[in-house]
Design a protein around this nucleic acid. Structure first.
Length: 261
DNA sequence: ATGGTTGGGGGCCAA
């Protein structure tokens, strides 16, 4: 059984102490990070190796984006994709020893205005997910995709379906495209495999709130999906909500799957 | 309708 975590860490260097605490508490085999916000030459490789991860793949850039996979399981191979014509570091993939492909994505947030003619970032986000779909169609199986998809697809993936209907992350064009991606690989949404669709489920709470826990205006932006042939291998799913109250937290909390590889 | 906070990096931009 392998425990795999996906977490938008919002600066890998700033949050090394939280990462250490997470590793101590959860003892994961693999951690996929997004928004490392560090160029490769300042990536804290030795500190992460010291946390027990002998195998680390990373692809970063200065200030923005950046992804990494920390693993106790060896990699048979690793690679990155450039998506939607961008140089952004938003994807990294490894083939885990045993043959399962693990893909880690940081989907663009898409800016504030949900209009492709007024907001190039929103257009980029939609095209990014469309290109993921084209990629997914040609994927060899079995595979796991994780990451900050920056889209909350279901009604109860947001605190208010009505109030967020025109807010980027929960708009119809985004959800339509995410559903197309999901259908292209017949992907299993692991969170909703374990937790009923009618139950509220969030992985992100804005910093711009006096009391995130009391207002509880969350969104489920972080996802773990597996190919159909891995569904019977799923053991558990969890969202580490309490980590949002740790000192100097990310605005995202880790999502966790246990799966037989 | 607006603003609220955070991180990186040294300007504001992105989230």
């Amino acid at each position: 059984m392998a425990k795999i975590i996906s977490w938008n860490i919002n600066s890998v260097r700033l949050r090394l102490p939280l990462l250490a605490k997470l590793v101590t508490q959860q003892k994961p085999d693999v951690i996929c990070l997004q928004e490392t916000k560090a160029n490769d030459d300042v990536f804290p490789l030795s500190a992460l190796t010291d946390l027990g991860f002998a195998h680390i793949a990373f692809s970063g850039q200065k200030s923005y984006n950046g992804v990494a996979i920390l693993s106790k399981i060896p990699f048979a191979s690793q690679r990155v994709m450039q998506i939607a014509g961008s140089q952004d570091k938003r994807h990294i993939a490894v083939t885990l020893e045993g043959g399962v492909e693990l893909h880690n994505f940081y989907v663009p947030a898409g800016g504030d205005i949900p209009d492709v003619t007024l907001n190039p970032a929103y257009d980029f986000k939609l095209r990014f997910v469309e290109e993921m779909t084209a990629w997914s169609n040609n994927l060899r199986k079995p595979a796991i995709i994780v990451g900050d998809f920056n889209i909350a697809p279901f009604e109860h993936d947001v605190w208010s379906h009505k109030q967020l209907a025109n807010v980027v992350s929960h708009t119809e064009p985004e959800i339509t495209r995410l559903n197309a991606l999901k259908a292209s690989g017949n992907w299993c949404d692991v969170a909703r495999h374990f937790v009923d669709e009618q139950q509220k489920l969030y992985s992100w709470w804005s910093y711009r709130n006096k009391d995130w826990e009391k207002s509880n205006r969350g969104r489920r932006l972080d996802h773990i999906w597996v190919t159909p042939n891995l569904v019977s291998n799923l053991q558990s799913f969890d969202i580490l909500k309490e980590m949002r109250n740790w000192e100097s937290p990310s605005d995202h909390v880790p999502v966790i799957v246990e799966i037989k590889l």
